[in-house]
């Protein structure tokens, strides 16, 4: 297992705690609203951000764990197809994650690299009561998660590439 794989697994285990935080935030929110008639302005957007961290990093985590689903019916019947199937899967993954990383980069850059006239940082905001920089953060998060995912795919292509060169 490569260093990158181990890193993605570690990162996944860490980010999984975001879900625990959401549980506590929701309990607090309901108590605040029902018990004290004072709902928070932040619980909703913070929960979405925390959950998205889990969802996005979850992609790289499953790649490192090799738990992304595939239909192995044909490959099981014709084992000679196995290495071709593996290579094709990685190429498809690289195309998708490459495209998504590029898009996420462009979006994140535009949403975060913004300054007001006074020079203060002015990221894209949600426009809600809280008006948090949630959209900007989500875009940046997607970029980071995609790049990690892409690197895992490229790292796994390396041995295939070397084998092809030896032929």
């Amino acid at each position: 297992m490569s260093f990158l794989d181990r890193f993605a697994l570690w990162l996944g285990r860490m980010t999984a705690w975001c879900f625990a935080a959401i549980v506590l935030i929701m309990v607090y929110e309901v108590a605040a609203r029902y018990g004290f008639n004072a709902p928070t302005t932040w619980a909703h957007e913070v929960s979405i951000l925390l959950a998205s961290i889990g969802f996005v990093i979850g992609g790289a985590f499953c790649m490192a764990e090799r738990t992304h689903m595939r239909i192995s019916l044909l490959v099981d019947r014709r084992p000679r197809l196995a290495s071709f199937s593996e290579a094709l899967g990685l190429v498809a993954g690289a195309i998708y994650l490459g495209g998504l990383s590029y898009a996420a980069w462009r979006m994140a850059e535009k949403a975060l690299w913004r300054f007001s006239l006074s020079g203060a940082w002015d990221p894209e905001r949600s426009g809600s009561t809280l008006n948090s920089p949630l959209p900007g953060y989500l875009k940046a998060l997607l970029f980071v998660g995609c790049v990690l995912f892409l690197l895992l795919i490229l790292r796994r292509m390396l041995p295939l590439h070397n084998r092809w060169r030896l032929r």
Binding site: H68, R70, L74, L88, G89, A92, G93, I95, G99, Y102
Partner: peptide
């Protein structure tokens, strides 16, 4: 799908290729 490409990549890769060919790199937005 039949060749065992992970499902997470199949429609995504098709979407990326379609977008780039139909709308160019900016289209990936």
């Amino acid at each position: 799908l039949m060749l065992g490409v992970p499902l997470a990549f199949v429609s995504g890769a098709i979407a990326v290729v379609l977008t780039v060919t139909q709308f160019g790199w900016n289209g990936l937005f």
